Structures are given as structure tokens and as C-alpha cells.
Amino acid sequence: MNKATKIMTTTLLASSLLLPTAASAEQVVDKTIITLGESLGAKDKAWVLARLNAPEGITPVIATAADEEKYLGKNVPQSQLGGNMYSSAKIELAEKGDGLSVATENITWVTKDMYLNALVTAGVTDADITITSPYKVTGTSALTGIMKAYDQTSAETGIKLTDERKDLAQQELAVTSDVGKTVGTDKVAELMNEIKAEIAKQKPETKVDIENVIIQVIQNNNIQLSDAQMDRLTSLFSQMEKADLNWGQIETGLKSAGQDIQAFATSEETKGFFAKLFDGLSNFFKSISGLFK
């Protein structure tokens, strides 16, 4: 065997250790699902899998640019789409009633609360979700991957996200982004949650009733919105009302946004995983260098 063949064989062997093979792997392992952005190179994939402490033998769901257009392109601003797909996610399915938590890292546009609100509206209620990227990115590919993951694993998890609710989640994300330009990204999710809580409490029956609830909430918070923003909010919540959503479930489907991902990254279990990974990489590169001696 010549040196070039040895190098190629060693490289393929290392890759097989870092990423599971499709033949032996599952998309749901230990109640966990992993999503990866399609733009990640081999080294970046290894970094993300280690960062998320991916279970052995799992097949990641790959989020593509075509998927992003399918799941988000109808309503999310194009300025936030169409870039490289790097953000990825770990979904840990929880027990019914546990609620939803989200932790993020290197995400610049989709905030934790924006993920929470959009996902609960889409029908995701009981899971701990960790989102990361090796680079600072908007975070839309992770949201795309999460939606795609629930679609692809519905037969195994029993969780089915309807097209109607996924569309409403897209709209909510877009409206939240728009209103956030006025009230601030740190306050807009709280505002949306308060509107939901009031709708759950007051049970408005008409579009005018919904508009009055929204006016009441923004006045209570001393917020001024444009007529266009008010129209978008009223339209969104009216569509939600027509979809006969369980407002009580939506209101209570959220729990703490979760601890910062840095706390996760410094856990003993994760540090042990990183140590094994980098030991393996170190030995791999030593073996390559040895071929040239």
C-alpha cells in the first residue's frame, strides 16, 4: 500500500469514528435528536457533535438551504435567510408537562425567547433544546433543522407538527422580529407572551376583540407601535384564534430559557467527551505525520 492510499484510508477511518454510519445509526437515540447545518465541514461537524455531546450511533438530521426556504422562506425576512447553514441543535425529548427550554451559543438574530415562542406555536412543548454554531450566525438553520427533525421522526416520537401550526410559527417569528425593532429584542418576546396570556384569560371571540386585547397590553406597557405593526399583530393572533389553538397550553408550554450553554459545556460529562475527541484527533494527526517519516 503506497503512502497516498494509507493517508486516504486513515482519513476515512478517522471520519467514521467522528460521524456515525447511516447503516447502523438512528435519528432518535436515548430520546435525543441532533440536527446539523449542511454548510458544516468535517472539522466543524466534529466540533458541533462534541459540543452537543451527541449520543453514539445517532444519525443527524441535515438542514439544507432548500429546507430553510420550505420551513421559513414564506414569512421570515429574506435578509435573514439564504446564507450558510451552520447553526445546529440537540433536541432532548422530555416527559409530558415538563415544558420547553432553549439554550443558545453564537446565535445573533433568533433569541432564546424567539425560538421558544415559535416552537411552542408550532406544537413543540416538552423538550430541552441546545443550539450552537462554530461561528456567529443568525440561527435560522437550527430552527429549520428542528422543524425538519420533528417531521422526520414523527413516527418514532409520536409528535406531529401540522402545516398550519408551522406556518403560524413562521409568521410569529417574522412579526416578533418586526415589532422587536420598536420595543427591543430583549422585550418583544415578553410582550408576545403577555398578549398570549391575556388571550388565554379573556378568550376574545372576534378580530375586534383580539385587537382590543393587544391595545390593552401595549398601553399597559407604555409601548407605541405603528399602524402596520398593529395590523400584523392583530392578523397573526386572529389566525391563531381561527386555528383553534389551545391558548392555555401555549401560555404554559414555556419554562425557563435554560442555563447558558457555557454551563453545559463545562460539565464533567462534556469535558470528558471533549478530552476523548481531542485525544483521538491528536493520535490521528500523529499517525498521518508518521507516514511521511
Rank of each mutant, 00 (worst) to 15 (best):
G258I: 03
D279T: 15
S88M: 00
I214G: 04
Y71S: 13
D30N: 15
T140F: 15
K90F: 01
T32D: 05
V28M: 05
W109V: 13
K181W: 04
L19V: 13
N75D: 08
G158V: 05
K166D: 07
S289D: 15
K90P: 03
K31W: 00
A275T: 15
L119C: 05
T11E: 07
V208G: 02
M8G: 01
F237G: 11
V102W: 00
F284D: 08
G41A: 02
K3M: 06
D30I: 01
T9V: 04
T32I: 10
K112N: 14
A4F: 08
Q229I: 11
N283M: 09
E205D: 12
G37T: 13
N117I: 14
I195G: 08
D98G: 02
V213W: 03
R165F: 03
M147Q: 13
E164T: 09
L93V: 10
E105W: 04
G99P: 06
A89Y: 06
A42R: 05
A257H: 02
S287T: 14
A42S: 14
P20T: 13
I250E: 15
A174L: 11
I7H: 00
T234K: 07
Q27G: 05
S15K: 09
G248K: 14
G139N: 07
L17H: 11
V76D: 03
N222F: 08
E205R: 11
A54I: 03
K43V: 14
T130F: 00
I215V: 04
